[in-house]
Design a protein around this nucleic acid. Sequence first.
DNA 1: ATAAATACGACCTATTTGGTCCTGTATATT
DNA 2: AATATACAGGACCAAATAGGTCGTATTTAT
Lengths: 134, 134
Amino acid sequence: MLKITRKVEYALIALSQMQLKGDESLTSVKEIALQNDIPYELLAKTMQLLARAKIVEAVKGPQGGYRLKQDPSKIKMTSFFEIIEGPMGFMDCSFDSDCEQIRSCSIRTPIQRINDSIREMFNNISLNDITRAV
Amino acid sequence: MLKITRKVEYALIALSQMQLKGDESLTSVKEIALQNDIPYELLAKTMQLLARAKIVEAVKGPQGGYRLKQDPSKIKMTSFFEIIEGPMGFMDCSFDSDCEQIRSCSIRTPIQRINDSIREMFNNISLNDITRAV
DNA sequence: ATAAATACGACCTATTTGGTCCTGTATATT
DNA sequence: AATATACAGGACCAAATAGGTCGTATTTAT
């Protein structure tokens, strides 16, 4: 529990490298995958998610690659996680319609407290806070 | 990702009910399992973890059960999670000895930042903050 | 034309989580 | 003493999630 997934990890690696290279230059998946010894295909898919979400911009063809499209300091980590992993939430109470009444009553509040805390925290951390160079 | 597990959930349910019943009275696993429609065996194991960690105290035999042994407001959520789930951490960098040098260099810092943030947060939340009645 | 790059769905494998079963031990009650 | 009840805990299975691979299409610089 409370672990980030590989996809998130790989995305953070990619983005921090892209930030180092500057806004205009293009970085290919191959380049990042080789340099960091991470599976090409998986990183490729992850980058595609970021492209769909307009976090990065894709340029096809030889010499192509990705470049940053949004300012990482304006992207909340909650959004970032959700782009990659889908809707997050400590618990799926709301979708869990076969949940017994008595049970939801006694736990929704405590769970919701954890949920709220963690969401609030990641709402206040930007992608740049994580990927910026030290 | 970032979800609490069932075991943690069940433990929170159990503890909040025990808090409601007061410090001296005993609560059996059967009672909690039935009332909340959660699997008896799994809850039983989870309670055993809490008992080993001296969070609760077990009384065997008929009319037996568990009672709180420590003040929930003195138990950090980080400890609580670790009692139930084992050592937590957003990433197992340190154990991952076959990790490539170049890779660990470029990401250890960002990942560590997330790790630190979440740990710090749950260090500042007590079990009681979660399980106390509203 | 060709090669290099992204786009993306289908699919398989490994790991983690959730849950069950069985046996043992302690103890209150009769 | 016998019995029923409750915790203790290992072994094991099932379901869900995460991690990774493959194949094919599309775009575009050279």
